[in-house]
């Protein structure tokens, strides 16, 4: 018993000055990052105060308390944009993550290294196209006229008898939006999952093979459980960003589908540039602040969920 290792040993903390001196190069390297965060992330938060004012950039801001929030809560277009933001973002996130997992598993199963690399390159490529270019390409591909390749194929196959305006009809816009998003971002989403898959010990697969496990069983009992933590992390991290939806919705929306395609960021955009006068920046800041608060709540909920599921949080 005398040789048993002591427990609960408290290592005395060295004074701050000594610690600072010891790690001075780390702190020095951290200064630019700290400056960047302060200048670009925290200083702009001073602008939050405008959400409690009426402000048109010409006259001094006039404090109006919570009036801007009362106004936005009374606007049906705001709630429509809020609903669309959550719906489009969350469904997109689930679809993209699900597809990325499936694609990663398929790629993981590929034996020929050259073919695998080629496939990876091809599926990564759309991620590097700007949304403006992607939207132009799909507007052409999905055009209901003779210029629209997709409609022409469907017509030739006899599936439809008249071109469908995929991006111009409310009923078609949302599914089309999801498909374009899957096409553009799924490939890139596989990067993390492929990294996680490559970290699985091959010995586990070998042992499973010796035990008589087939390919499906190995995937179900080894691969997917090994990926579960990564899937959860990816979902949680991306859930925190769902309120920031803008570019993809903005470039693909048009007048006829605004009831389905208007999201909070585009709502702010149109309030600013479509007001027919000088916009009230107090109102648009209030919308932005509300969006940030909802985003923050989502992060905290996710963090709580992560603690429950994984035993540790993400923030």
């Amino acid at each position: 018993m005398e040789n048993a290792p002591p427990t609960n040993i408290k290592i005395p903390k060295k004074p701050l000055s000594i610690r600072l001196l010891k790690y001075k190069w780390f702190y020095l390297m951290f200064i630019p990052v700290l400056a960047f965060v302060i200048v670009f992330y925290y200083t702009p938060m001073v602008g939050i105060r405008y959400s409690f004012t009426k402000y048109n950039l010409i006259r001094d801001p006039v404090f109006v308390g919570l009036d801007q929030f009362k106004r936005l809560f009374s606007m049906p277009n705001f709630w429509s944009a809020f609903y669309n933001t959550l719906k489009l973002s969350i469904v997109k996130l689930l679809l993209n993550t699900g597809m990325a997992v499936v694609l990663s598993l398929l790629l993981h199963e590929m034996v020929n290294l050259k073919t695998k690399k080629l496939a990876q390159t091809i599926i990564y490529l759309p991620h590097f196209l700007s949304w403006v270019v992607a939207a132009s390409v799909f507007q052409l591909l999905l055009s209901p006229t003779t210029a629209g390749l997709f409609n022409q194929v469907l017509l030739k196959l006899g599936i439809i008898d008249k071109g469908i305006y995929f991006l111009g009809k409310s009923s078609w816009w949302t599914p089309t939006y999801y498909v374009i998003n899957i096409w553009k971002d799924t490939g890139w989403g596989t990067v993390i999952f492929m990294a996680a898959l490559s970290a699985i010990d091959p010995g586990v697969y070998e042992a499973a093979s010796i035990d008589g496990a087939g390919r499906w069983q190995k995937m179900w009992h080894i691969t997917l459980p090994a990926l579960a933590a990564t899937i959860l992390t990816v979902l949680i991290l991306n859930l925190a960003k769902v309120m920031n939806l803008f570019e993809s919705a903005f470039v693909l929306q048009n007048d006829a589908v605004m009831d389905k395609a208007q999201v909070l960021q585009t709502y702010i955009y149109y309030q600013t540039f479509n007001s027919g006068g000088i916009p009230d920046y107090g109102y648009t800041t209030a919308v932005g602040l509300f969006k940030s608060i909802v985003g923050m709540i989502l992060v905290l909920v996710c963090n709580y969920a992560s603690k429950k599921v994984r035993g540790r949080g993400i923030v």
């Binding site: 048009n254 149109y270 600013t272 007001s275 027919g276 000088i278 916009p279």
Partner: peptide, 26 residues
């Protein structure tokens, strides 16, 4: 002319008008 009320509502109003014009036309 621009009025305060116009600055307040015209963004939403224009979006709605444009949507209705497009939907009727199509």
């Amino acid at each position: 002319p621009t009025t305060e009320v116009m600055s307040m509502y015209n963004g939403d109003l224009t979006t709605l008008k444009n949507e209705l014009v497009a939907k009727v036309a199509m």
